[in-house]
């Protein structure tokens, strides 16, 4: 078992999230996290899906995902050359305010609200970074927290959307690229 991050470009159409979620559910694939949002093209949304599974199962997941008509392209993000980020918002007790400020500074996080005996902190970073921050804050009394799913972008000039966008909008060649991707 190992962790894999998939970037999935989907048509921005109603029900597409339900289709992807339904596929993972009915094929009994477990998702660690799923983040979805708009891209530079208003017709296309991008999902970042984090999974823990065996390599050959990953091929199957990608092939099954690609069968969804609304899925335009899929790529496994290479661990070495990818920027991974998560967003954390966490509300902690202000009783040990100085300690909180010290931790926030050392983790390069940000205080976004401070009132009524609580401090709200915003942090972004790789999963390990966020986990360490939470570990440090736990003894100070975490009241509430929310985390985004992981998002990921490849370093350098490579762009998944290069394959999918053309002057007219959606091009017709990316599908074969996507196919080549998951066959590799």
């Amino acid at each position: 078992m190992s962790q894999h991050t998939l970037a999935v470009l989907v048509e921005n159409s109603p029900g597409v999230l339900a289709r992807v979620a339904s596929l993972f559910s009915r094929r009994a694939y477990n998702i660690d996290s799923l983040a979805v949002g708009p891209t530079e093209d208003p017709n296309i949304s991008r999902m970042t899906i984090v999974l823990n599974l065996e390599g050959h199962v990953l091929d199957q997941v990608m092939a099954q995902l690609y069968k969804l008509v609304n899925v335009i392209a899929i790529s496994e993000m290479p661990a070495q050359s990818t920027v991974h980020r998560e967003l954390l918002l966490v509300k902690v007790s202000a009783q040990q305010s100085a300690k909180v400020h010290e931790i926030v500074e050392s983790f390069e996080a940000k205080i976004v609200d401070e009132q009524g005996g609580t401090i709200t902190i915003e942090a972004t970073g790789e999963t390990a970074h966020i986990e360490s921050l939470l570990q440090a804050l736990t003894p100070l009394g975490i009241k509430e927290l929310v985390q985004s799913g992981l998002v990921a972008l490849e370093r350098g000039e490579a762009a998944l959307s290069d394959r999918t966008l053309s002057a007219q909008g959606i091009s017709t060649t990316h599908a074969l690229n996507a196919q080549a991707d998951y066959q590799n």
């Binding site: 091009s171 017709t172 990316h174 599908a175 074969l176 196919q179």
Partner: peptide, 9 residues
């Protein structure tokens, strides 16, 4: 028909 996500090989 042009479907971005459907190109059977």
């Amino acid at each position: 028909i042009q479907l971005a996500g459907y190109k059977p090989q």
